[in-house]
Design a protein around this nucleic acid. Structure first.
Length: 461
DNA sequence: ATAGCCTTGACC
DNA sequence: GGTCAAGGCTAT
């Protein structure tokens, strides 16, 4: 049976929702989608959608539109290059280690859930430090389907190691290596080595264009670069969950953290991920460490908030807060248990999420916004101010170009996004002040990156 | 054409 | 020798 390998019982095929039978062509899928993908690529099939290329694919409907089914296969991350051009049977391919790693991470996650601790669904007070042991992990963690649809982790970003919580120690080492499996989860950058894939269901040209607007123009080059730097959501989820699992061993010694403490730990780990993203990102790599530190010190809370907000917009459900670990909290519980400040912050955040959700901001746009935030020329005492300003302008230009390509409302969408960005900045300033207050009253756990960031800005502000 | 089951073979 | 993701076969 498929479960003998530790594959989760609840694991569903990201294409059609059927029962998963194992790893196929890059990720866990069902037997039928495996076969469908193989037939399509091997036989160089071309399909046409009779509707408008957005057919729903599920177990009962998957046979109705092969075009949309194949699109979805690609969209969720099935790899063309895993279909063998030579048709030689048996053996292993280069994805083997990736499958193994993914399995290990999934197991870690399961262990974390079962480890005792966390209960997120029943509303413990958020931000209340008076409550002890108010979060417990239970098996009740809801897998978020979309997160299981994203491509598997790369080995590059899976170096799960605890590093000293100092930004300085995180920055100087350069590791520009791009993993061989690294492939942006963006639909724009699917590449394949298979000889016959050029027109398998969609034209090769369409492989590089927006699937929902196939006749649309190509994505601006810089947006593509930004997407290449953008970490994969599932990978992030696995990494942070794994790190929290390591933290869990400390909890046994010192008692479980409060909900607020747990949120700080998550924020802290997310900050590590943000630093890692910046450190390996285009343009940022070229900066001197001093400037890198100054930029991160100046915008960390904006990036952290954007990370949370974008997760809600892209993958979240209405009425709940999707955590970086993939777990969900009921917003009503949060609101009813939190103090006034937190409740107001959550409320404002929710409003911003709603705004961005309505205009359907996508990953590409979020990727641009992240760079606009990171390359903040207003950060103090920058050495290479001119370069940083020019990168921000380029990022804004890329976002503008992208929105013009994808939206018929001309400048409206771009302006709207910038407006939302300024709202995000003022909200993150409020959140940062709140956290700083908590820190001063000794309620934020010590010795972490979050605290370094909180202190840094004040030390030279 | 689909999808469940079978065979193969590199890697552990 | 076992595992398990490739490709193959075949009833539907």
């Amino acid at each position: 049976m498929e479960f003998r390998h530790g594959v989760c019982l609840e694991e569903l095929c990201p294409v059609c929702g059927d029962k998963v039978s194992g790893y196929h062509y890059g990720l866990l899928t069902c037997e039928s989608c495996k076969g469908f993908f193989k037939r399509t690529v091997q036989n160089n099939k071309k399909y046409i959608c009779a509707e408008n290329r957005e057919c729903r694919i599920d177990v009962s409907q998957r046979k109705r539109c092969p075009f949309c089914r194949f699109q979805k296969c690609l969209h969720v991350g099935m790899r063309l290059e895993a279909v063998r051009a030579d048709r030689i049977r048996g053996g292993r391919n280069k994805f083997g280690p990736m499958y193994k790693r993914d399995r290990a991470l999934k197991q870690q996650r399961t262990a974390l859930i079962q480890a005792g601790g966390f209960r997120i669904d029943s509303g413990p007070p958020l931000g209340s430090s008076t409550q002890q042991r108010d979060l417990t992990f239970t098996g009740g963690l809801h897998p978020v389907p979309i997160l299981h649809c994203t491509p598997l982790p790369t080995t590059l970003n899976d170096r799960i190691s605890y590093q000293p919580p100092s930004l300085c120690s995180l920055l100087p080492s350069d590791s520009p290596g791009v993993n061989q499996y690294q492939c942006s989860s963006s639909n724009w950058t699917i590449k394949s080595e298979h000889v016959n894939n050029a027109a398998a269901g969609i034209d090769s040209d369409e492989l590089y264009s927006r699937p929902l607007s196939p006749r649309g123009p190509r994505m601006p080059h810089l947006v593509m670069e930004f997407m290449r730097c953008d970490p994969d959501e599932l990978q992030l989820q696995n990494k942070i969950t794994a790190r929290l699992l390591q933290e869990h061993t400390n909890w046994e010694k010192h008692g479980n953290p409060s909900t607020f403490g747990l949120m700080c730990l998550m924020a802290d780990q997310t900050l590590f991920a943000i630093v890692e993203w910046a450190r390996t990102s285009i343009f940022f790599k070229q900066l001197k460490v001093n400037d890198q530190m100054k930029l991160l010190h100046s915008c960390w809370s904006d990036l952290l908030l954007l990370d949370i907000i974008s997760r809600q917009v892209l993958y979240g459900k209405e009425g709940s807060l999707l955590l970086v670990t993939g777990q969900e909290m009921e917003l009503s519980d949060v609101a009813s248990h939190a103090g006034l400040t937190v409740a107001s912050l959550v409320q404002k955040g929710q409003e911003l999420v709603e705004k961005l959700h309505i205009i359907k901001v996508d990953r590409q746009e979020f990727a641009c916004i992240k760079f606009i935030i990171l390359f903040n020329p207003d950060a103090k005492q920058l050495e290479d101010h001119q370069f940083i300003e020019s990168v921000q302008e380029q990022a804004e230009g890329a976002l503008l170009e992208y929105t013009l390509c994808t939206s018929s409302h001309l400048l409206g969408r771009f302006a709207h996004l910038l407006l939302c960005l300024s709202e995000l900045r003022s909200l993150s300033a409020l959140a940062e002040d709140y956290l700083y207050g908590k820190h001063l009253s000794g309620e934020v756990l010590c010795n972490n990156l979050l605290i370094e960031m909180l202190r840094a800005k004040r030390s030279w502000a």
